[in-house]
Design a protein around this nucleic acid. Sequence first.
DNA 1: GATGAATGAGCGTTCATTCAT
DNA 2: CATGAATGAACGCTCATTCAT
Lengths: 203, 203, 203, 203
Amino acid sequence: MNVHSDNGAKKSMAKLEKRDEIVRAALELIAEHGFHGAPMAMIAEKAGVGAGTIYRYFENKDVLINELYRDLEERLCAVLMEGYSPEQPVRERFIHLGTAILRYCISSPLDFRFLEQFHNSPYGVVHRRDKLFGKTDQKDVYRELFEEGLVQQVVKQLPMVVLFALAFGPLITVARDHILGFVVLDEALIGQTIAACWDGLKR
Amino acid sequence: MNVHSDNGAKKSMAKLEKRDEIVRAALELIAEHGFHGAPMAMIAEKAGVGAGTIYRYFENKDVLINELYRDLEERLCAVLMEGYSPEQPVRERFIHLGTAILRYCISSPLDFRFLEQFHNSPYGVVHRRDKLFGKTDQKDVYRELFEEGLVQQVVKQLPMVVLFALAFGPLITVARDHILGFVVLDEALIGQTIAACWDGLKR
Amino acid sequence: MNVHSDNGAKKSMAKLEKRDEIVRAALELIAEHGFHGAPMAMIAEKAGVGAGTIYRYFENKDVLINELYRDLEERLCAVLMEGYSPEQPVRERFIHLGTAILRYCISSPLDFRFLEQFHNSPYGVVHRRDKLFGKTDQKDVYRELFEEGLVQQVVKQLPMVVLFALAFGPLITVARDHILGFVVLDEALIGQTIAACWDGLKR
Amino acid sequence: MNVHSDNGAKKSMAKLEKRDEIVRAALELIAEHGFHGAPMAMIAEKAGVGAGTIYRYFENKDVLINELYRDLEERLCAVLMEGYSPEQPVRERFIHLGTAILRYCISSPLDFRFLEQFHNSPYGVVHRRDKLFGKTDQKDVYRELFEEGLVQQVVKQLPMVVLFALAFGPLITVARDHILGFVVLDEALIGQTIAACWDGLKR
DNA sequence: GATGAATGAGCGTTCATTCAT
DNA sequence: CATGAATGAACGCTCATTCAT
């Protein structure tokens, strides 16, 4: 270790730093160009590592993508739960979640684009099926929220899947449109959009 | 079937027939396996033509995909307009369109799967941008409908893009879930879902 | 076909010609450098075809190697049976076979080297096991010959596998040494060697 | 085990111990899976050392393999010479050597498998050439034995290489077949096999 | 015009070897 | 000295596209 070691240089990276660089590079490339537009060699180059290095951290491309997804899902989940209070009324909770989602997609557009790509791929379908049919035991705030809403009769008596669609279909769509520059979401618009979703949902 | 069609069965195909076979084969393969699961050679085989033949009808794979998209869009548009009457109130017209979309996706799941794949790919982004920013002069029923709704003050005062999202985000989502078998859409559920969308949309 | 088409040029090859070139190239490279010293790209180059072309004729490298083996085995078998007469005494028949083998290895050293490489590889072990345990119904002259020799009590009462070893172990060994230039087999030496093998075999 | 050896068990290894572990690991992996099935990293892991450590003891993989071969050859040679008495008749000496070889291959199948792999590879060819053409000055019991047999006119008047083939070709072959489970060599069969070899050799 | 064999760039992945620690 | 993370050339294989027939 040199006392003068400039810590700005591309020189050595710590172990975790390297994994992070790979993940970040994969995220950017996949978010921007899709799974096919992100060859391992390109990810490696963007991450500033050798092509073989990726395989020290991830068994193969599928694993890399799935771990990246899990990372993002976790991050998103943390964001959603921040300030979430199960004591609040269903409506307030829904607005909290919706707002958090839209803000997240605005502040982390790459994350959001990646999540979309993932959901619209075979990976995502499998993942969704497992989730719906309870192959994961991860507790699910949305489900809980809507189930409570059904019991309290504040949301429409519709299948869970349809409630999801009514609640998040529009959010995902405007989020994408925002990222692609088709609309600019500001706080006011976020609020109005979510309120409109609630109108669709509520009894 | 032409009365005069030589009944050499699979033998010669008319020019248009051939193009259609290619397009149909591409549709099926892409709908089922995605863009990457549909190599040109496989499309050719399924279409019953030589691999090189495709290039007589489509400059390259991108063009094939884009033309296929245009075909489907046209078909969808025709379905939507069937029985559509501009004289009806905005709400009735919206319900007509929504119902038509959901019925179409149920009766033509391959078409729908393809359209989704397309929209969630670089192709789709470009296409959407062109449409929004008016690079196409194709008249757009949705836009007209919502613009009228805005003028009549029956729908919320929100940007067009957000109205789209509120209206079609849920429909697309439930349609996909139906195709993937996560929910079964019957006529009753279709009606309720579209009514809920309208609740989100209306002032 | 042009009347003047110079038939010496590298120009076009007929379909079978191409398969043959690939097989020949694979044979030479594997014979000289082993399986690992014969990458597909090198085989393609030596064959004068594109790398991808090989896969039109052979599903993958394993299949190429196995088909090549089968080709050679067939060729060898034909050579062995040429002039072979089941009516002759066991000894004469053995000498016929042994002579044919040695002559073949001298005249087709590449074939022989390949066969050796194959036998000394996982491919060969599997192949041998199938043969010994009768998973192939290919009739086997050696086996028949030795079984007859056992019945007539002209060869030693030893397990078939040991008889094989006594008969062909030395032949394979001298054949390899000849090819590698460690000894020069002429007709006289061939005769003496096979006679010696018979001495080891006979009762 | 040294009385003073720190019993930190797997902890530190003496220099020679480490080399031995590497060699043993290489032997096992190569014997079982061939040269290609034994990556350096796997050898290192099995040996319980770092991947880079191997290169302190062996310049590269080729050198490792060649030194491993030399080790085994030495071991085999020691086994062969145990109880070998140059005063005995040629025949008895041959039987001693042959028996020792077969017993060795039965008791040390890994060694034997490795030696075979080696002989059937470019390494082996070079090695053999050096030996035959006297680039090594290692005295050679077989050669001496056969030369004496020639002088005494108890073995056939054939080139040394052919005598080798007659003597050891069958032994190697049955040894392999034993290891692969195609035949079971017991003491009786060993004796008969070697006797048969001698029949092939003797005048 | 129609064909499909041929192509080769590009993919995901492995592994012998190096070198900072 | 020993390490093992990092490397990148090389592998087997795929597939959009071309072109001789």
